[in-house]
């Protein structure tokens, strides 16, 4: 089994940029997943958490956390958002490993992400903390 990146990546390691543009069909799937009678009307905009989730999926793959035998727990999440994002609007996400330590055989990692629009302006940030167990050492 290949060694997952989380085992070797050092603090400051950069991920991406990922294109996390959300097309209409994924916005429809999101509405099906979370929607209800009291749901807000987003119009032609997205729930920002969708963009964060799309970046998180890319990060998990790059960190090698879909590797067999690993068990990953999403422990914490921070999000800040500066403006609405339109469906189909180009958004790029760049991640940076902010922390990566091993305690009692478990990896504790935090990845910070910056989201930028097509002009390069930052429109949001996030920080994800994960705990990974089951890694061979």
């Amino acid at each position: 089994m290949a060694v997952p990146l989380i085992s070797t990546a050092v603090i400051g390691h950069e991920f991406g940029p990922y294109d996390v543009t959300i097309p209409a069909e994924r916005a429809i799937a999101y509405a099906k997943a979370v929607g209800g009678d009291e749901s807000p009307d987003y119009g032609d905009s997205l729930a920002p958490i969708m963009v964060v989730a799309a970046a998180l999926t890319e990060l998990i793959e790059d960190l090698g956390l879909f590797s067999g035998g690993l068990q990953t727990v999403h422990a914490g999440q921070e999000v800040s958002w500066a403006r609405p994002v339109k469906i189909g609007e180009k958004v790029d996400a760049i991640g940076r490993l902010a922390a990566n330590s091993v305690r009692r055989g478990n990896h504790f990692a935090t990845v910070s992400v910056s989201y930028k629009d097509s002009t390069g302006s930052e429109i949001g940030t996030s920080s994800t903390t994960i705990i990974v167990s089951g890694e061979e050492s």
């Binding site: 987003y42 729930a47 989730a53 422990a75 999440q77």
Partner: peptide
């Protein structure tokens, strides 16, 4: 996402424009 649906309903004009959160699962 469900929690943010609540925030978007409560603060429709500002949650997506300056909102922040920090949570533990």
């Amino acid at each position: 996402a469900l929690v943010t649906e609540m925030l978007a309903s409560e603060f429709p004009n500002s949650w997506h424009d300056g909102g922040k959160l920090k949570v533990r699962f």
